[in-house]
């Protein structure tokens, strides 16, 4: 478990990072929590020549700010900080709930939300949550550029981030206090990556579903929104039959691969089960009646 040799840098400013990335392009990698990059290097699946540690920039890239219309989270915020954030537990409980299910305690104490979305493992958790929340990612390369989640996750381990860009901030639109939410992750054992993971948000309106957002991960080459299901839910008085139809539509969009986690058929089956469970939980949390 020994990586290829590499050169290591600790920058003082963000522009130093960008300057370096522009010079070395694909040969350089920024290091955040290291819990995806370092295992890949040790297995020699990745062999960057230069490692730029973002840790010295922690002061300016690690914050959780709630104000105005959005919640802003710095790229270096660790999973565990989100898991234990009191303000997020009140404002957007799906975030701490999802964080709690990532890896084990050691992983959560090191891994960062920015690193997770930048790495964009199709079986990881944050991308699914971010997609459901319509998060917007700020990318910095000397100037800032904002990319919405719908355009950010391109494929397995591929995002809209250019080799010379650094992800600095994640901005999430605030939701009304009374919203229903659910985070469901199906894993083979504690600490495992998901077989399927589902984020659901419900905004109630006069005893109906005002709008719904459902994102599904791990059963497709990238996380996806259950668009047809969301359309069916909009304005509906939810009942079990509708839930079933939405779950079916979610499962039909999945394109899982058969592997040690199960056959494609089984994965489609559990996608349906977990979308159903997630939807029911979110509806209940939205204080809506489920007939």
């Amino acid at each position: 478990m020994i990586p290829k040799s590499f050169e290591y840098f600790e920058p003082k400013t963000l522009s130093e990072v960008v300057g370096f990335l522009k010079k070395h392009k694909e040969n350089a990698k920024v290091l955040a929590g290291g819990h995806s990059l370092i295992p890949m290097m040790k297995l020699r699946l990745a062999a960057p020549q230069y490692i730029i540690n973002l840790e010295p920039l922690r002061k300016s890239l690690s914050y959780i700010k709630v104000g105005g219309k959005s919640i802003r989270i710095g790229a270096l915020v660790r999973h565990a900080e989100i898991e234990h954030s009191q303000i997020l537990k009140r404002e957007l409980p799906i975030l701490p709930a999802a964080a709690e299910w990532i890896g084990d305690m050691q992983v959560r104490n090191m891994g960062t939300i920015g690193g997770s979305v930048a790495h964009s493992d199709p079986a990881s958790d944050w991308p699914v949550v971010m997609l459901s929340l319509n998060a917007v990612f700020t990318l910095y390369s000397g100037k800032k550029r904002k990319v919405p989640a719908s355009k950010f996750f391109i494929g397995p381990f591929t995002t809209a981030i250019k080799p010379y860009e650094v992800l600095t901030e994640i901005e999430i639109p605030r939701l009304p206090k009374r919203h229903g939410w659910s985070w469901k992750k199906f894993e083979r054992k504690a600490g495992d990556f998901a077989t399927v993971n589902v984020a659901t948000l419900i905004l109630p309106k006069d005893g109906h579903i005002g709008s719904a957002s459902i994102a599904v991960g791990s059963v497709h080459y990238r996380p996806y929104r259950v668009t047809e299901g969301e359309r069916l839910l909009k304005g509906a008085k939810p009942d079990l039959e509708l839930v079933e139809r939405v779950a079916e539509s979610a499962a039909s969009m999945a394109e899982p691969t058969s592997d040690l986690r199960g056959s494609a058929e089984y994965k489609r089956h559990v996608t349906k089960v977990f979308v159903k469970r997630s939807l029911i939980e979110a509806i209940e949390r939205a204080n809506l009646n489920l007939r």
């Binding site: 297995l43 054992k189 504690a190 495992d192």
Partner: peptide, 16 residues
């Protein structure tokens, strides 16, 4: 061999 790390060879942990 496909089970070449503990991500794929599943040892039970305290939770299990």
């Amino acid at each position: 061999p496909l089970s070449v790390s503990f991500a794929d060879y599943l040892l039970p942990s305290a939770t299990e």
